[in-house]
Amino acid sequence: MKIDTSIVISTYNSPEWLEKVLIGYNNQTYRQFEIVIADDGSGKETFDLIEELSNKVFYKIQHIWHEDNGFQKSQILNKAIVACTTDYILMSDGDCIPRQDFVEQHVKYREEGFFISGGYFMLPMNISKLITEEDINEGKCFDVAWLKHHGLKSSFKNNKLTASGFKAAFLNYVTPTNASWNGHNASGWKKDIIAINGFDERMQYGGQDRELGERLFNYGVKSKQIRYSAVCVHLDHKRGYKNQDSIDKNLQIRKETKEEKKVWTDFGIIKK
């Protein structure tokens, strides 16, 4: 079986969530992929988990790690991009459990000259905690009836879990949400990401994924919207790394990228 897709999963000291995510990938209908974990400085518990799961799952895991130096997700993502062994890269996070057809949908819609934009379905903390390996294997955590039984409220957003076929395609088409590069659910060609020099490593929390997508647009890559087709559920967590200074700095970088139609960053994979 030829591996043709690399899945980059970002994580930082969240082994409980990462375990659920990696179990999700062990249930995929499309299996021709490797997992590349972009680890922003996790401790021993994460190392032990990855070693344990490497002996249980069908796919190969690369664990790309650097020392903890605060929120440096852009840096570790660039290292993970370089480590990917295939031509196509799917990116998600270590708190997003993929539905069984998640990778299949990205592979189905991939096309030269495009990147793919997906979304996520946010779960509250109580449900995030109670999901077991069995619930993931049996697909219960994607079942609206099961989720409602455990307290999920009715919402139009529930269509992300229930839509399929024509309805999913229609909702992908009419959604007002931009088909941007979303770090939790996006994919594209490695050669395109390398051509724009990957992520801007000046950027910490807040929009570094969007800025990558904006440079891909400037490079001439278009996007496809599949938020109702490629489904992952997002496990709740605190965001202690979120701060306004970082967000403001990143907004300024994004403004320059748009106004100057920048394709390349001098602060990416290749440094001046």
Rank of each mutant, 00 (worst) to 15 (best):
T5I: 12
S6D: 04
I7N: 05
I7V: 15
V8K: 03
V8E: 01
Y12M: 05
Y12E: 02
Y12G: 00
N13H: 12
S14C: 10
P15G: 09
P15K: 06
K20N: 10
K20C: 07
K20A: 10
I23D: 11
Y25Q: 03
R31H: 10
R31A: 13
R31P: 09
I37T: 05
D39F: 12
G41F: 13
S42T: 01
D48N: 02
I50P: 03
I50M: 07
S54E: 15
K56G: 02
F58G: 09
Y59Q: 11
Y59F: 15
Q62A: 12
H63W: 15
E67A: 07
N69P: 05
Q72I: 03
K73L: 15
V82D: 14
A83C: 04
A83Y: 05
T85L: 12
T85H: 00
T86Q: 03
I89T: 03
S92H: 06
C96M: 08
E104C: 04
H106Q: 06
K108Q: 12
K108F: 15
F115C: 02
F115D: 00
G119V: 11
M122V: 15
L123T: 08
M125V: 13
N126I: 05
I127H: 08
L130I: 07
L130F: 00
E133D: 13
N137M: 12
C141V: 11
L147Y: 09
G151Q: 11
L152P: 07
K153D: 15
K153C: 08
F156S: 04
N158R: 03
N159I: 07
K160C: 11
T162H: 06
A163F: 13
A169Q: 01
F170H: 03
L171M: 12
N172C: 11
Y173W: 15
S180H: 08
W181K: 04
N182K: 04
S187L: 09
G188L: 05
W189T: 06
K191N: 09
I194M: 12
A195E: 12
A195P: 11
E201M: 02
Y205P: 01
G206I: 01
D209M: 04
E211S: 10
L216D: 01
F217I: 03
G220R: 08
K222P: 02
K224L: 08
I226R: 02
R227P: 03
A230D: 00
H234Y: 12
L235A: 11
L235P: 02
D236V: 11
K238Y: 01
K238R: 08
R239W: 02
R239M: 04
K242G: 08
Q244L: 00
I247W: 07
K249G: 10
N250K: 00
E256C: 10
T257Y: 05
K258M: 13
K258S: 06
E259M: 15
K262V: 05
K262C: 07
T265H: 03
F267T: 06
F267R: 05
F267H: 12
G268A: 03
I270T: 10
K272A: 11
